[in-house]
């Protein structure tokens, strides 16, 4: 069933969403209607974290957000992590540390790590592991990702 057109605020910009079906998830709308495919679709049941975005600053699975219900919220996706075109600290750290292999889990992990470091600039290893435990990675075994979080935390502390 079609929904009335609505507006989503994503990465600091308002996006009109016309012709939407009511049952479309935020993930679907981001990827297929707003041309923002950086958030990934690996399970669509909240078990992999590949679709993680920030909604009003909270990390959530965009596959489990009904798109039309996010009206008036501030949505930040991987495309909005570094709005000025330069890579953000977490992004640089992932490249440098070798935390990226196939890269499918990467956008979701970056959103999770960015959220973590905002809340806790110096997380210990167990805190990091718990914070990213909702983001499955099948390539890396997480070792380089943990290394990347350390680098990113350093970068963010240096910058602040």
């Amino acid at each position: 069933m079609s929904a009335d057109p609505y507006v989503l605020r994503v990465n600091g910009r308002d996006h009109e969403v016309p012709d939407a079906h009511l049952g479309e998830s935020l993930l679907w709308v981001l990827r297929e209607r707003l041309g923002l495919p950086g958030s990934k679709n690996a399970c669509e049941e909240g078990e992999c974290g590949s679709c993680s975005v920030q909604v009003d600053g909270e990390l959530v699975c965009s596959c489990l957000v009904l798109a039309a219900s996010a009206v008036g919220r501030e949505v930040i996706t991987i495309e909005g992590l570094a709005p000025d075109g330069e890579l953000a600290d977490v992004q640089r750290a992932f490249v440098e540390a070798g935390a990226v292999q196939c890269g499918f889990c990467t956008p979701g992990l970056l959103m999770a790590v960015d959220t973590l470091l905002d809340a806790d600039p110096s997380p210990d290893e167990l805190t990091v592991r718990e914070a990213i435990s909702g983001n499955l990675c099948r390539c890396t075994g997480y070792g380089r990702i943990l290394a990347a979080v350390e680098i990113a935390a350093d970068l963010r502390r240096e910058a602040s």
Binding site: P37, S39, K40, E79, V90, V100, P107
Partner: peptide, 21 residues
Amino acid sequence: APRPDGTPKVAGSFAFSSDLW
């Protein structure tokens, strides 16, 4: 050496097969 596809992959601009349009 760093991956040549590392930057697009962290930026979310790397086109996976499910991203095609």
